[in-house]
Nucleic acid binder design. Structure first.
Lengths: 213, 213
DNA sequence: CGCTGCCTTGACACGCCTCAACGAGCGTGG
DNA sequence: CCACGCTCGTTGAGGCGTGTCAAGGCAGCG
């Protein structure tokens, strides 16, 4: 089963024809180098992009250079589904395998495949829920808590698409990027990370899973 | 023109029949006291609520009692449009005038009034954009900056629905609520607020508008 | 070989939190 | 009528979490 189908089935079972359509949708992919923009150059019929492999992020820049990352896109996530231009930028973090889906295809899906359409709506609601949780994370939790929470969130999301092996996953993020995600300085991220690692080593032999219990 | 029409026309002009339908939609409103929940008791066909007057907010509670507010609902805003249960709660801040819109009505609007339907979609996208901006606000900006930014956001949003008079507006929030919005303690909110007021008095004779230039 | 990007560590400064106390306003009940 | 309790705003003192600055190490790479 392809990654898109897998993701959409998180909402509910899809029929065989639905799954075949989705197979066709993601047939043609291309590769994008790390740290490259994923936006389109002002094309009007703004197409949707889907991450098949690799990690990307969405962020905003302030005038003085400060950066806030407010979403990570893992395989199965969409770039521009139901969104609009408010200064947000999408770019790859690691090397990514990406599909470009024409607006027309999306319209066809929503008209002729109601269950896929509903699943797509569900996906955008989940994304919005993730945004809300990030606000809680940044606003209320300490650096230790929020870093741990972020690592757990990624664990869960990567697990959902089969990218976790034995409780471990690959995270191609720099500490600077983690900092810009949580509103922390690089230095502090480094210290907290070491603290968590030390603690994980001595107290959580099963690694991050222990966080979730 | 009623407040809902006014809000939806922020996206684009509506036809006379569209406007008439919207008038009917909000015909029957009721009053909700301050600090009351706006959720429904597990009703399945979850209806949508619309604020006609007053201020409400959306928040989450952590187990230890910490609270994070991540949205304010001003007149014209929806409570449960395109959302799902993830521990978020809606409640009034001041006394509110509220309309309950049956799910059926929404479905009717989306099927028979395409421009209203598109406007509703636009509204949810705007809301999501606001969430992203809040993450930037909490994550990157200092207490002074984020408080000022929040006050400006509310100025703009209230102005859009005609609730700003001479650059001033009524804000029925406690300092504790402001704190839970920005991840600050009450004490610090108090100090920053005084600082801003002092500064506004001496340097920004036009009040908050000066922020926006 | 000397870049450059990233991680790491120490010293110090500061923003923000916590605790504690008090005052103003207001509704309630004796 | 006053006393009381409650919520909210205000202010001070002190401490901690986190930022900033600075320096050095290590790996990858031209």
């Amino acid at each position: 089963m392809n990654i898109l189908t897998r993701k959409l089935q998180g909402w509910g079972k899809l029929s065989a024809p639905d799954r075949e359509v989705l197979d066709k949708v993601i047939a043609q992919s291309f590769t994008v180098d790390p740290h490259q923009d994923l936006i389109e150059e002002g094309q009007q019929p703004n197409n949707v992009r889907l991450i098949l492999d690799g990690l990307a992020c969405r962020y905003k820049l302030l005038r003085d250079g400060r950066r806030q990352i407010f979403a990570y896109l893992v395989p199965g996530d969409f770039c521009d589904l139901h969104t609009f231009d408010d200064g947000s930028l999408d770019r790859t973090v690691s090397r990514c395998e990406v599909v470009e889906i024409p607006r027309k295809t999306i319209l066809d899906l929503t008209e002729n495949h109601p269950r896929i359409s509903q699943a797509l709506m569900w996906v955008t609601l989940v994304d919005e829920g993730t945004l809300r949780e990030w606000i809680v994370n940044i606003g209320q939790r300490s650096a230790r808590e929020s870093l741990a929470h972020l690592l757990c969130e990624l664990l869960v999301r990567l697990e959902a698409v089969g990218l976790v092996q034995g409780g471990e996953y690959d995270l191609p993020l720099t500490q600077a990027e983690l900092g810009d995600t949580l509103g922390l300085s690089v230095v502090h991220v480094n210290r907290v990370l070491k603290h968590l690692a030390r603690k994980a080593w001595s107290q959580w032999p099963n690694g991050l899973y222990a966080f979730l219990m």
